[in-house]
């Protein structure tokens, strides 16, 4: 076991670098604004955006919460459906051959075009946004988990053969645990995608009960400062989901993995 880094080390290695990056970005942004003299409806300065957020904080935070609910709902559905489908896929080649094109269809279908149809079918509530979030985020989980389930170490596979293990024993004791690193890779991608899906879905949902960040961005096209704040929050929501998912995965799922790669 590696020694846990102290808090000061964690601060300098993990927290400081992105903070510096953000500060530098803010400086560039402000400089561009000052030099170019663009009006606020084209490019608001960071300060204007911050003010706009503060004035509308209750509204924006509520929208962020709603978007979060859609995204986490969609991601959860993706985890359940994605892992189930990949377990089905690893059972036989003909199943994979038959159904994989459908899975690819999910990935390649233009989501902005499909979203209005989903909203039409499922109504403008959160069920629709969750479903759109699911559509966008399920594919990475399916492909990565399937790869993991099929990519069993040959030596371990022979070990199970040696003891005449049943298919079921092999699946639960070897393939599923062995697929976790790949599953986590898929999950990380999916966590960011789920926010994207939720925001796109909200573009087409005009109800007040489901007025997430996507709807805010859509409605506030002519109020650039607030819109920028909403964009910032939707981005941060994606980052937060990714970080939490990564942390949980590494802490509870990948404790045994020698080759684990941390993005945090």
């Amino acid at each position: 076991m590696t020694k846990k880094p102290s808090y000061s080390v964690a601060f300098f290695c993990v927290i400081l670098p992105p903070m510096i990056a953000i500060v530098v970005l803010m400086i560039i942004w402000t400089t561009v604004k000052i030099i170019s003299q663009y009006p606020d409806y084209i490019l608001p300065s960071p300060l204007t955006v911050t003010n706009a957020f503060w004035e509308n904080r209750a509204d924006i935070l509520r929208s962020t919460w709603l978007t979060f609910l859609s995204a986490i709902g969609g991601l959860s559905l993706s985890i359940v459906v994605g892992t189930s489908v990949s377990i089905l896929f690893c059972q036989a080649k003909w199943i994979r051959r038959g159904l994989f094109p459908l899975a690819i269809f999910l990935q390649t279908v233009p989501i902005v075009a499909v979203a209005p149809i989903v909203v039409l079918w499922l109504d403008e509530g959160m069920i629709a946004t969750m479903f759109i979030s699911f559509l966008v985020s399920v594919f990475p989980i399916i492909t990565n988990s399937t790869t993991g389930l099929l990519n069993v170490d040959n030596g371990l596979f022979e070990l199970f053969r040696l003891y005449n293990a049943s298919r079921f024993q092999r699946l639960i004791r070897l393939q599923i645990p062995g697929a976790i690193p790949n599953f986590v890779t898929g999950l990380k991608v999916a966590s960011g995608m789920s926010v994207l899906g939720a925001v796109v879905g909200e573009f087409f949902c005009a109800t007040l009960a489901n007025k997430g960040l996507g709807r805010q961005i859509f409605e506030l096209k002519d109020q650039a400062p607030i819109m920028f704040a909403c964009i910032f929050f939707s981005t941060m929501l994606g980052v937060a989901m990714f970080s939490v998912v990564s942390w949980i995965s590494e802490r509870f799922l990948l404790f045994w993995d020698e080759k684990k790669i941390s993005h945090l």
């Binding site: 070990l159 003891y163 293990a165 645990p177 062995g178 045994w256």
Partner: peptide
């Protein structure tokens, strides 16, 4: 077949199981 044991060139331990659980594995399989 259980009475014929085989030791591979590589240790072939399941990386997510500790030493004890790896040895207990034949019982479970």
């Amino acid at each position: 077949r259980q009475q014929i044991a085989f030791v591979f060139q590589e240790a072939n331990l399941l990386p997510w199981l500790n030493a004890f659980e790896n040895v207990a594995l034949p019982f479970r399989i």
